[in-house]
Design a binder for these strands. Structure first.
Lengths: 216, 216
DNA sequence: GCGACCACCCCGTAAACGGGGGATTGAAAT
DNA sequence: ATTTCAATCCCCCGTTTACGGGGTGGTCGC
């Protein structure tokens, strides 16, 4: 059983080249080629195993198409992006929308058939420069969420108070809850602000979340 | 000026094979080969541009080495992992530790030189099956952060303001930033509080996080 | 026309903020 | 053994800000 492949590409030369690559590969069957978003939409519900698509189409962005394909329940065709657009925003948008692979047109597409086969078997062919964006993005998220429990840790009392503040308690209310003086609450709050390096309640909450002191 | 490459690989056959790949590439200069973590550590502070390393070493995991290299300030050598270990945990650990690329040993390493060159120029060579893990992980984070409120949606202006408040802006500062009257800021803030059903800044931030209006 | 969103204004009360002062305890460092 | 330090607690001060209520007017889309 050969995999059904659809090519979405407005440049006839590129489309033809990719088409040859697909047909040269055993296991792949080129069932259609279209140059527009509209044409591709008409094919979504057909029995397609793999879309190889360009992002810059005359009637819109291929990213829309990715979203539409992924919105279909039940269908899980693979999507391999083949684009000249290598900027970080475009790449991330495509990947987050659900692309299974992202290849730049500047690579030697001699083995486009192999790349397509990789995609079909659960792999994610990425051009190295594309992969660099993705990895960078991954690591950035990691570092954003980490860097500050090492600053100055809050004392147990301060954490206790912080959780009350997160629930909207005023200093006075927190004082009643903890059965201490409102002045002392004020002191603890000052202390929290100093340790978190903020100067008001809102920012303190934000930092508390980002530090993992408060949970979602 | 050729790039200095160090190979960290305990299997002599693989090391030799990779070494040939490196030497066959103009622009790459193989300066050392070692089969142990200890041997690699001695090379960290040398002038190395690229490490090609195996993860399964006799005296520990290559991931430790990645962390040690990345902990060095000033040095920014590229790190290309070449491993038989293709499980998701290992891959993510290596990538998050700071690997610039990850290749499985089952690929045809004929073009190891090319992959190395890609890594040196800022690319991230990933085997397709490896890339699939990375993309899946990326998207999962996205979906975890998504499921949201539908309570009362904030207007664009209110969201804009909310983000300023999250950064600790006072009403007056936000007014300056958005170039509108402080009174109007107050009005928008009231509106936000009403929609989020809170009555102060701190609680508003908390609800914004829990609603997905603000991201970690 | 009605309801949103956005913008602006005034008011008063209440709260937060940012300094200062001091006390006690217990652990850690010298 | 003395000191130093963090944590907890208490208090006062003044200034700034937030909060919650009121009202006005404009634009836009349905």
């Amino acid at each position: 059983m050969k995999a059904n492949v659809v090519i979405v590409e407005d440049d006839p030369l590129v489309a033809a080249h990719v088409g040859r690559g697909v047909e040269a590969h055993v296991g792949l069957s080129l069932v259609a080629t279209t140059g527009t978003l509209a044409g591709a939409r008409a094919l979504i519900d057909r029995n397609v195993d793999l879309f190889i698509l360009d992002l810059g189409l005359p009637d819109g962005s291929g990213i829309e198409l990715i979203e539409e394909i992924r919105a279909r329940a039940g269908l899980e065709p693979k999507i391999l992006v083949l684009s000249v657009l290598g900027d970080q925003d475009t790449v991330l948008a495509a990947v987050l929308a659900g692309a299974d692979g992202y290849l730049l047109k500047d690579i030697d597409s001699l083995d486009i058939g192999q790349q397509a086969a990789d995609a079909l078997t659960g792999g994610a062919p990425l051009s190295p420069s594309i992969a660099a964006y993705v990895l960078r993005h991954l690591r950035r998220q990691r570092e954003d969420a980490k860097p500050d429990d090492a600053d100055p840790p809050l004392s147990p009392r301060e954490i206790e108070l912080l959780q009350l503040l997160a629930r909207g308690y005023s200093n006075r209310q927190a004082a009643a809850e903890l059965e201490i003086s409102p002045h002392t609450i004020g002191d603890h709050v000052k202390s929290i602000y100093r340790k978190l390096r903020v100067s008001n309640r809102g920012e303190a909450m934000v930092r508390a979340f980002r530090s993992g002191l408060l949970r979602l």
